[in-house]
Design a protein around this nucleic acid. Sequence first.
DNA 1: AATCGTTACAACCGCCAGGTA
DNA 2: ATACCTGGCGGTTGTAACGAT
Length: 316
Amino acid sequence: MGRAPCCDKASVKKGPWSPEEDSKLKDYIEKYGTGGNWIALPHKAGLKRCGKSCRLRWLNYLRPNIKHGEFSEEEDMIICNLFATIGSRWSIIAAQLPGRTDNDIKNYWNTKLKKKLMALSSQSQRKPPPLPIPSSHQTIPPSYKDCSSYYYTPSTRSFAGFEPLSTVQSDLLNHNNTFLATDSSLNHTTPDSFVSYYPVKEKFLMFGSEPSCSSSDGSSYGKEIKQEDVSHFQGFCAPNGYEDNHKFMLSYGNRNQWTEKPSGYHGETPLDYELEDVKRLIDSSGSNNSCNNTNNNNHFFIDESKRQEKVMYYYY
DNA sequence: AATCGTTACAACCGCCAGGTA
DNA sequence: ATACCTGGCGGTTGTAACGAT
């Protein structure tokens, strides 16, 4: 059999927390900790609240070092990056933003950031410029053959190659909209190599993941990204014009290859704004952005030198 | 000043994975 | 082996604050 029920829902208080309740909860946790049992905590602390409610109140509001107020452009950028990479996994995103909670970020995204991007999107109702795509599906611009990946700059209509751009926590990618593949068909069987696909409506978007900072207070809240969890990551996908039948450019190690849409991929998009808008937002924060988080527990940092290279897309 | 619409955010709800009896 | 609890998470809702008319 299991444990006793967590609380009698009929007798617990709901709704906004009063300053007295906040004070009781804060005092209790500062004195005794949570004891690893949120369900028992409210009774011990003299609160008529559900344990879940206490936990939420503590994590989202009362916990030390919680940051409230405006998000910086740098934070915007990190959120956009990670959202584009892993979707709405707010707790993971929050773990990269010191002092921010998943709830905070979720609210911020839903109420402000998404609209900001949508507004940018509506400003640019335009087709992408024609691209100098290689005629063969199996080739890449010759001058970039030595590059692990390359990207297209719309403003200059040019390509540039770049180094392996980023790493990503492997378990970040276990996401509905993400596909992992060790590509045996390409004889590329390094255990930690994989290809990942991130869809964006009509175009496809690949952000090199920018795992950065661990949670703000060193608590267990959020997931820490550990270096050893990281696999080298190269990924790229591209649409076949505006059709559904997308071709994907795979890029990993020194290999680049066009391929068919992966089986099992159904292409529902997590984003409904344009890649360029996201990119513009990221670019708009300027070149002096850096992750200044000095938390010594960080396992990651943002490599700003790679930021401009994050977005790659290709048409053919 | 009153009303209505919008925004921001705190809190709740329901689901799930993992743990425990 | 199984039922069920707990903690964690993402989605959604409720409401106070604010702004426009």
